[in-house]
């Protein structure tokens, strides 16, 4: 019983935070997904037998298995989401690094000789 209360409190808090972020317009899609998951988790904690009923209707033995499969699916979706975000960030980092490299290109008028290099004054050339 006490663990049930613990789960309800934890998921309830997550739900409240997601409502706040949703209201403030911070990552609305993600907030909505988190709110949905936390509500479902609260419901499962309050009425554990309902998960078994749903599981049976879906052809799964027990509610525990249903929760396990759902958790795996949510985690995989989460990993995929963060992978996409990581790729975007890497791409942006590369563009920034490239921009700086192009702006700070060094030109040596007499390559091969020592200490002749100077700033190429950006890539304006052409």
């Amino acid at each position: 019983m006490s663990f049930q209360v613990f789960l309800i409190v934890v998921f309830g808090l997550i739900g409240v935070v997601s409502i706040l972020t949703l209201v403030r317009g911070i990552a609305p899609k993600l907030s909505l997904v988190v709110l949905g998951i936390s509500l479902a988790a609260c419901a499962a904690a309050i009425w554990p037998d309902v998960t078994t009923v749903i599981a049976n209707k879906l052809g799964i033995d027990t509610g525990t298995h249903l929760i396990l499969y759902c958790t795996v699916l949510v985690m995989m979706a989460g990993f995929f989401f963060f992978y996409i975000r990581l790729r975007q960030l890497r791409r942006e980092l590369t563009l920034m690094v490239r921009h700086v490299a192009l702006m700070q290109a060094v030109e040596s008028p007499t390559p091969g000789s020592s200490a002749q290099a100077h700033e190429a004054s950006g890539p304006e050339g052409k």
């Binding site: 700070q104 290109a105 060094v106 030109e107 040596s108 091969g112 290099a117």
Partner: peptide, 11 residues
Amino acid sequence: RHSARYALRHA
């Protein structure tokens, strides 16, 4: 930067 005509650096 001392051997090539142009040298660029990724930070």
